[in-house]
Amino acid sequence: MDIIIADNLVRQFHSPKKPAGSFKLLKSVFSMQKETINVVDHVTFTVRKGDFVGYIGPNGAGKSTTIKMLSGVLVPTSGTVHVKGLEPYKNRKQHAGNIGVVFGQRTQLWWDLPLIESFKLLGKIYNVPKERFQHNLEMFTEILDMSSFLSTPVRQLSLGQRMRGDIAAALLHEPEILFLDEPTIGLDILAKEKIQSFLQKINKEKEITIILTTHNMDDIEKLCRRVIFIDKGQILFDGSTVVMTAEFGGFRYLVVDAPNWDEAAWNGPSVERREDNQLFDGSKTTSRWPP
C-alpha cells in the first residue's frame, strides 16, 4: 500500500532580482523583477507502508523543502502530495496526527522547560490519552536512555541528548509516518549509533514508515533499504540501497601519504592518481587534509 504519493511536485522560491548599474539601490526599491527558482522540480515518488527511505543529496538540493511539503508546512507551487490519502496542507490538523517530524537543526522542545514538561505539553497538544502517553513516555525513556536528563531544561542538554528528546517528542502521539531531517547532524558516533538502532527498532517493530534525509552515508547504509537521490530539485536515482552502492560506490579509495614511497615495490591495487610531492615540497610545510 502506498502511504505517500508525490506526483510532479514543484515548489518555487522567488528572490528579487538585483538591479545593476547606477542608482541600483533606488532601482531595487521599485523593481518588481523576480528570479524564480524551482527548488523542487517535478519530483514524483511513492513510498509504501513500513518503508525506510533515505532521501539524500547535496546542500540546497531540495530535500528539506520536500519534507516540509510532505509535512504540510509549505504549500506546493504545483503538483500534488498525498500522505495517507490526505493532502497535507489542506488537512493539516488531521494530517499532523499521522506524522512525526524531526528537524535536526531545530528543536520543537521548549528551550527553557525541563524535557518532561515539553513532552507533557506535546501530549496535550496532540491529545494523547493519558495511559498511552504514560506508556509511550516510559518506553522511550528506557530505549533512548533519557531518564538521567528528563528533568533538565532543554537548553542545558547536550546535542545528543536533545536529539533523542526531539525524536521521542515526534513519536509520542504514535504517528505512522516519521520524517527525519538530518537527525544525526553533529552527533558523535555513540549518540549516532543509539539513534540509529532506535530508528531501526521502531521501523521493524511498529512498522513506522520513515523518510530520512542525511549527509551521513553511514545512516543510509545501516538503515535505509531504499534511497532517493536528489540534486537541483530533480530525482537522479530512486532504488534500493544495494543497487546504489553497486552503481556509485563500487570503489573505495585509499589515500596514502608517505615520504619516500617506492612505487616500484608496490604490489597492491593499481594507483589511480599521483600527487607527487604535494605534502613535502618544501614551500608548503603544513600538511593538508583531505588532500
Binding site: 516540509k68 509535512s71 504540510g72 508546512v73 493539516r92 490538523k93 488531521q94 499532523a96 496526527g97 506524522i99 517530524v101 528537524f103 531545530r106 520543537q108 497538544i125 496532540y126 491529545n127
Partner: peptide, 14 residues
C-alpha cells in the same frame, strides 16, 4: 527568520 515556525505550522492546531 530562524525557521522554527515550521513547528508551529505542523502541529495539529489552527
Amino acid at each position: 527568520r530562524d525557521g522554527s515556525i515550521v513547528f508551529d505550522m505542523q502541529k495539529p492546531w489552527d
